[in-house]
């Protein structure tokens, strides 16, 4: 079923046309990878789905983006809060707050009053379990999260995101700060998470896209050149430019 749909989406930073006439249709409970060279607009596209681009001054959007058949481009700030609860985000660099592990997980819940204090313990356990951190950290919940390893930090950030119970998790190069082994572990985690969440991942690592994703979109200079099943994109790309990129002939 369609989770995210974009129709003729355009985005400008000032005079710079960063996204050009994008049409897409992402299915739910799948992992969709967006690949492309630096500056192609893949991060910008990702940040359309939770409207993080709004933070950039001089940004302008045209077209239509639907999540669960509801438009996300028009609507007041209240809707933006609602949207971001529904569409969580994991960033490139693990960025836990300098607070305890526990406080990090419940951060969003606490501010939004989404759960009662009595339920916090259960939610912390559930969230940490789903990112496979519970066994490692159950005795260190009160320890400062800055003392964790990079991989643990990134898992914790994922736990913090899913504690708010989003439908969609956007991941902006979530493994680029991690070593190969930690990368594989986070990828395994993504496979687990896709049973419950729709995941969109931006990556410049083509092997990673090939390994983890069900669908792949290839972007170049602000255009979505090709979109389809990952297997097809990587084995039988229809567009010459996609083929050049995935075979390493681009640039």
């Amino acid at each position: 079923m369609s989770k995210i749909i974009a129709k003729d989406l355009n985005l400008w930073y000032g005079a710079f046309h960063a996204l050009k006439h994008i049409h897409l249709d992402f299915d739910e409970r799948r992992i969709t990878a967006i690949i492309g060279p630096s500056g192609c607009g893949k991060s910008t596209l990702l940040r359309v789905f939770n409207r993080m681009n709004d933070l950039v001054e001089g940004v302008r959007m045209k077209g239509e983006v639907l999540i669960d058949d509801k438009s996300i481009l028009d609507g007041g700030f209240n809707d933006l809060v609602k949207l971001r609860k529904k569409v969580g985000m994991v960033f490139q660099r693990p960025n836990p707050f300098p607070l305890s592990v526990y406080e990090n997980v419940i951060f969003g819940l606490k501010v939004h009053h989404l759960a009662k204090k009595n339920d916090f313990d259960a939610i912390v356990q559930e969230s940490l379990e789903s990112v496979l951190l519970w066994n490692d950290l159950k005795d260190k919940l009160r320890k400062n999260a800055l003392g964790l390893s990079l991989e643990q930090k990134q898992r914790l950030c994922i736990a913090r995101t899913i504690a708010v119970k989003p439908d969609i998790v956007l991941m902006d190069e979530p493994c680029s700060a991690l070593d190969p082994q930690a990368t594989l572990k986070i990828e395994e985690l993504m496979q687990r998470l896709k049973k419950e969440y729709t995941i969109v991942i931006v990556t410049h690592n083509m092997q990673q896209a090939a390994r983890v994703s069900d669908d792949t979109g290839f972007m170049l200079l602000g255009e979505l050149i090709e979109f389809g099943k990952t297997v097809e994109i990587f084995t039988a790309p229809k567009d010459k430019r996609t083929e050049d990129y995935i075979t390493g002939r681009y640039g």
């Binding site: 939770n50 971001r84 609860k85 969003g108």
Partner: peptide, 11 residues
């Protein structure tokens, strides 16, 4: 990045 995460969590 603290602000970014914060906005992304819907604050």
């Amino acid at each position: 990045s603290f602000r970014e995460v914060s906005y992304s969590l819907g604050l």
